[in-house]
Amino acid sequence: PSSNTGFLSELLQGEPEESQVCSRVVASLLREQASRGKHDRLNTFSIMCKMADQTLFGLVEWARNCALFKELKVEDQMVLLQSCWSELLVLDHLCRQVAYGMDGSIYLVTGQKIDVSTVLSQAGATLSSLVSRAQDLVSKLRALHLDRQEFVCLKYLVLFNPDVKSVQDRRQVERTQERVNRALMEHTLHTHPGQSDKFGQLLLRLPEVRSISLQVEEYLYQRHLLGDLPCNSLLTEMLHAKHT
């Protein structure tokens, strides 16, 4: 267990503080608004996209600073991130709700809260369904008492996916996946001995995260085709990469 504890604390050290993430996104949004005249303010959807874009920048920076990720060539780093960027965004959102959210409201990366009912009353059918599905998953993760170590392990399992096509050093990605899997299993057994099969239950959430993320991508791509997404963003580049 001691080596496992050491391994998990190494993974945790790479985690940015929520306050840092929040202030970085808020600063970016304030700069953006300040650069705009009174009559071309960003609408709500564009602000949300900017938040997602800034959060994505942060996730790429997080991955880039992971010691295990650094062991991979840049080509492999790109392929893995292009495959899982939307899952990382969804997982990041879900875990923020578990850590800071309240029932019935959504906690944004900027620290603001929005009532789910408000979102559902204004959003279209697709977005409403996405929000509801995400909230259901938040409830499941809350019921599982997901903790920070488990959240980090799930992020690593999403990022180090050996099934991604055209990964060159597949064996290295598999090794990391196996190591993190073992660390997650030992951690859940050690911290929640009474909660039978917490490990299995956590892993069962990953296909749900994947499914929601694919729907998010499709939704964003449709909005992009309508010209609703801010251009020249990491978000649009990642969307394009998947559709080229």
């Binding site: 920048f57 790429v60 920076e61 880039r64 840049v74 780093q77 790109m78 991130l81 292009q82 990491l234 580049e237 990642m238 394009h240 990469a241 080229t244």
Partner: peptide
């Protein structure tokens, strides 16, 4: 513009500069 230019830049940028 290369389709992955920004991601490539972010993963390759040199922090020391």
């Amino acid at each position: 513009k290369k389709p992955n230019a920004l991601l490539h830049y972010l993963l390759n940028k040199d922090d020391t500069k």
